[in-house]
Design a protein around this nucleic acid. Structure first.
Lengths: 105, 105
DNA sequence: TGAATACATGAGTAAATACTCAACAATGTT
DNA sequence: AACATTGTTGAGTATTTACTCATGTATTCA
């Protein structure tokens, strides 16, 4: 079996490791398709969002498709959402553990 | 349903988003338990590794347990490995997509 | 052609990150 | 107590990141 590059995995995880990029992906998940919708929705500066989108595209997470003046984005792989859900699950369970640990201290 | 903090999720993902921290987790997965084994195995400066371990512990990913002079680490939640596997899967599939896209260009 | 809309980018800045070396702290052994 | 082993931490540095403001580019439509 092939060893998967830790570097590429780190690059992927890193692309997801920003609150605003997570929010962008959730926005796309819930139906938004272009920056022009996402920017006001998330209250992000246009140039700032553009740079976040570039990161998500460059890392193969989003696929851009021009449609007139706008650029619609779609997720490259639905498993990305699985990743975000799993991260949420882990955070939830970590919080539970900490509560339990405090109780037994 | 509760909205999971994007900030906490980002912090978790960020903790995993470094090649050496991924390698550390793989080392622990494969049976290593303390820095004294991991440092030479991964060829990392001891103080550097110590800081990586601190990040993993602080973010609730590893749990440290003192045993004499050494500190043994164990994974707080096995789903962390699931996360790393999923990241690998996503990277693999992204690479496949790029090959296919190049062919159709 | 000129205006409008959507997006990208250069320049500058502040903060965070990863790393190294040297010194320090904790634990166990003789 | 002296020493060895393991791990932490302060200081310094280089690089990267996120952000903003202003400007530039691409596309559409009047």
């Amino acid at each position: 079996m092939t060893v998967i590059s830790t570097k590429l995995r780190a690059r992927l995880l890193d692309a997801l490791a920003h609150p605003n990029r997570i929010r962008v992906l959730e926005a796309i998940r819930s139906g938004h398709t272009c920056s022009c919708e996402i920017a006001p929705d998330l209250n992000l500066e246009q140039s700032n969002l553009s740079r976040h989108m570039k990161i998500l595209v460059d890392r193969g997470i989003l696929i851009p498709e021009r449609d007139g003046v706008r650029i619609n984005y779609r997720i490259a792989d639905d498993e990305i959402y699985h990743m975000l859900d799993l991260a949420g699950e882990l955070v939830r369970r970590a919080a539970e553990r900490n509560i339990l640990e405090e109780e037994t201290e």
